[in-house]
Design a protein around this nucleic acid. Sequence first.
DNA 1: ACACAGATTGTTACCGATAACAACTCTCAC
DNA 2: GTGAGAGTTGTTATCGGTAACAATCTGTGT
Lengths: 342, 342
Amino acid sequence: MSNERATTGRTPDMGDVAALAGVSKQTVSRALSNHPNVTARTRAKVEAAVSQLGYRRNAAASMLSSGRSRTIGVVSMPTLNFSSAVIGYGMERAARAAGYSVSVATTTSLAPESIADSMSRLAEQAVEGIVLAVPVIAGSAATEEISRRIPTVTIDGSRSASTQVVAVDQFAVGRLATEHLLELGHETVWHVAGPAEWVEAGERETAWHAVLTEAGREAPPIVRGDWSPESGYQAGLLLTRMPEVTAVFVASDEMAFGLIRALHEQGRRVPHDVSVVGVDDIALAAYCSPALTTVAQPFEEIGRLAVDHLLDYIADPATTPDPTTVSPSLVVRGSTAPAPSA
Amino acid sequence: MSNERATTGRTPDMGDVAALAGVSKQTVSRALSNHPNVTARTRAKVEAAVSQLGYRRNAAASMLSSGRSRTIGVVSMPTLNFSSAVIGYGMERAARAAGYSVSVATTTSLAPESIADSMSRLAEQAVEGIVLAVPVIAGSAATEEISRRIPTVTIDGSRSASTQVVAVDQFAVGRLATEHLLELGHETVWHVAGPAEWVEAGERETAWHAVLTEAGREAPPIVRGDWSPESGYQAGLLLTRMPEVTAVFVASDEMAFGLIRALHEQGRRVPHDVSVVGVDDIALAAYCSPALTTVAQPFEEIGRLAVDHLLDYIADPATTPDPTTVSPSLVVRGSTAPAPSA
DNA sequence: ACACAGATTGTTACCGATAACAACTCTCAC
DNA sequence: GTGAGAGTTGTTATCGGTAACAATCTGTGT
């Protein structure tokens, strides 16, 4: 008693499964795609044959024939920082839940041509949608061209005609931090900002400035860093030279760590002499000395939302771009205290 | 004068390019794959047609027909920690340099069946090779089955019949840290270890123990954490109760941050009363107060090596598994000092 | 018992590229 | 001038699925 098809030594294909289950290739395909109109009995026979042969569907063939890759692409910076790592995790979970896999293209620069390059690498892999997890201020012709063809969602970027946006309300980030420090009685708040080409950084600055102005305070000059702890340290060396500095809003926790270290070295106590607020709520924020007051951003949710939106958009490209924002929250720890009553 | 083929509204395929360039499909294929035997003239015509039509090769078709996906897969834990992020970066760069792209499958648990599941998701995507960037102690039948079919390299794992290993010399990590502390004159060295199911953690323990024994010192009981800062903090609360503790080797920087915070809170000064050595050299290590002495691991190099090995292995599966190790290095900063001359 | 709708299964053609092989062109030695 | 051989290009079959349509089966109401 022998099968018609000899499957020895060859990786089994759908035809082999069909033959073993005594049905047609197409029925196997339907059973495996959870198509509704398949009898329980048939489905069981197919599943038995599948596991007996150790069959796996060939993704390439499936993709070629259906035109659907069940893959979404992500453009991100080399994920050395907390936020992108967590965003990536949120995306992966959401994508997997929807039966999609995620392909990552890193870009080392924020230049539009570099981003466009990453996007076309993804396009070559026939991704059905793209998440731009980089701080794009302006799209270029090249990026626009691709996102017209492939549904694209931008995280924390600026809106453009063919791109949806999912973002943390960065204005709220700046507002929460600055208001917190003013409420503690500080005369004004200094700001260590992120690089000018990051949208997030710009919006936090704007909010910081707006809150100060609204409260009738003078906004001191901005000190600019590059997100690195070292740049925060340098900013700290600068600020310790000015005795009038009692409150600093730092645009990231990592810079805040550097800043606090500089303050310590120069004998300024935190929070007794200077209060510091960071942004991100990285894992170590609670274990700094003193524990860092910071503005937490729901990164994992952002990742999830970006993918959910993208999948909706893929399902119905007619959807009108509808920017979604989620709110940050202030986490008060030990690095902030009432102003020294000079 | 009109072309035979109307390409309007359809994404162009190789046939369109061929028609426009006045050559055959196959020649286009050869030109685009950098096949040697194509005239410069022909290649130029093809390239012109490609850019005129905005043609991109369909990866699915290419994969189906050639059987090669030009993709490698990575199994990793949700990349919330420094090391995996940097390893991932190193892999991506190496893969891209070789014309490969990287597909990531995260696994939330270290259970063999969970890892096997991630591996088969990758197998479904027809990856040509797999990097296991998770601390596997033992393979299961299921994982073995897959890695027999698909070339697999394990990072920092245990060797198995069908798997190559690329690893940091974790014994050296433990040795460097422990010897450094002994050389500073400490009577013995305490150890806050990582979870028992991580190979790295085990080897560091072994080395720590061996160095102490060899020096004729008594090895104090091990305190075990789970890599989180919180677990380091808890370990710190425990150790501060014992006045005889003057030197601690902590198996990760993040735990070291937690431990140092606990020491501070309890009034033990670092490094004056207690010296601390961490592992990893995360970006913030230099900005802790005091700056953290730690053992740096060349993560990016590990990622690169893993991919290089994998590609060699793919090219020639007959290669005998040949474990590669790279050396860590001690970075001395401010958290270690000579033993208090009690 | 019969017609008919809906559910289930089968048949055929095709997705877009590449491998294997066949055919052609050119150069150079004799 | 001719044949050998290398270099270049074309032809055909095929990879493993899925869409679209055709065919069959099931159960229901009259």
